[in-house]
Design a protein around this nucleic acid. Structure first.
Lengths: 237, 237
DNA sequence: CTCTAAGCAGATAACCCTATCCATTTTCCG
DNA sequence: CGGAAAATGGATAGGGTTATCTGCTTAGAG
């Protein structure tokens, strides 16, 4: 429905969904809003209010809702490029020669991206069924990660009982550390990730409880993104 | 100031802070409120609203605030016994003959307590400077854990670079998993904890980034408990 | 330069939250 | 049983949030 043109920085002139050229002030404000949202979501996480984004952008609240009828759409617009960076990181990891290096480097990088952008951190543990482009990129990255896992297992460096769901678990755990510790110890997450990666390494030191089902993880991620309209915050802290 | 008597279940008659006997209805309602809060906080976490506790208890909102002038006091009253159970778990672990068994069993139990009670989970990553009794128990348990660490290290089963702050990290990570996954995969946390414990085991598989400073953790925990008056959760929450 | 349609911003609605006020009800003691 | 003091609970204040409505401003075409 209301998905505006992505060509915001184009010189020739952006167009809206109906192909009409956007008025210059509208185009300018749209860019400002996205930039402001990038700042605010990155600092405060996805539960930052639309009003705070408006304040940062120097526009009225209504202007934001004109461009992005629901908060979810603003989120999708803002994190399109982060999701691209995420997918790109997967591709780059796949290009590395050493499978274990690729695997661990990838995990560290994704967790670092979470630490650098709290909005991205939240987004990695949510799913947005409405934002197809976003989810397509996520799925693409996920496929790449599956390949990284296979290679690392084949090389004998990764435990056989590691599954892709363990990364999701780690990402959720990382959000817990990041949002609990905040800026008091900005690097604390690195230690958590290091503990986990060393544990992923073969040989196994013992059996593990079963990982959660894929369906359960998906449901949890979908439910997390629901609570963005109207009430609750994480939320949630 | 307004710390009421703890002898709620006494037969003879509870007394208020001034030593006056409480009226029977007041005593009854106080018990109901604490029971309701136990249920609600356990299910929804510490950011559950006072109104929802009132609803569960079948009393008016004002009644709650009469007994507990601030939400923090209700929290302290509700979790006094959980904190005791926590301290008791430490003591019991110290009584175990095998140091590594005691260490791992303790960590698993504390994380299980977090999973069983979302309010407790939140509380373990917060500090309440105003609730001296609570904090005294916490400090006592912490001392016991330090002893557990020493014994486990001396036995050669625990990595030398493990510190007590790593447990805090794990507790925060566990909150992340618990609140992200919710009831979709109630046992997912067990896998995270198992990964971590296997990593704690000696010999070390590699160096680790430095753990956060004690002061940083304390500040983060104190700040987390601040946001309970008036606005936000984590809280996101 | 004028005029119209699109875009803007602030006020507002409707819903959460913590905390307080005060008229009403309940307890309990003589 | 009667009256005074204590306890209650609904309304309300004052703060959040997402989202909408409306009158004013401005862009940009003729």
């Amino acid at each position: 429905m209301t998905s505006r043109n992505q060509n915001v920085h184009g010189t020739g002139g952006a167009t809206d969904s109906a192909g009409q050229p956007m008025r210059s002030d509208a185009e300018r404000n749209r860019g400002r809003i996205i930039a402001a949202a990038r700042t605010v979501f990155g600092r405060d996480g996805l539960h930052a209010s639309m009003a705070s984004v408006a304040r940062e952008a120097g526009v009225g609240i209504a202007t934001i809702f004109r461009h992005f009828p629901a908060k979810e759409e603003l989120v999708a617009a803002v994190f399109a490029d982060r999701m691209e960076a995420y997918a790109k990181a997967t591709a780059e990891a796949l290009a590395k020669p050493d499978p274990w290096d690729a695997f661990t480097g990838y995990i560290e990088e994704v967790c670092a991206m979470q630490a650098a952008d709290r909005g991205f951190a939240d987004m990695m543990t949510m799913s947005f069924p409405g934002a197809e482009a976003l989810e397509a990129l996520r799925a693409q990255a996920y496929q790449g990660f599956l390949e990284l896992i296979d290679r690392a297992k084949d090389s004998g460096h990764l435990r056989e009982d590691f599954t892709s769901r363990d990364l999701v678990l780690l990402l959720m755990a990382n959000v817990g550390v990041l949002s609990a510790i905040g800026d008091s110890a900005p690097d604390a997450w690195r230690r958590l990730v290091a503990w986990m990666i060393q544990s992923f390494q073969a040989p196994a030191r013992g059996p593990l409880p079963d990982p959660p089902e894929d369906a359960a993880l998906y449901e949890a991620m979908r439910r997390a993104s629901q609570g963005m309209g109207s009430s609750e915050a994480g939320k949630r802290r």
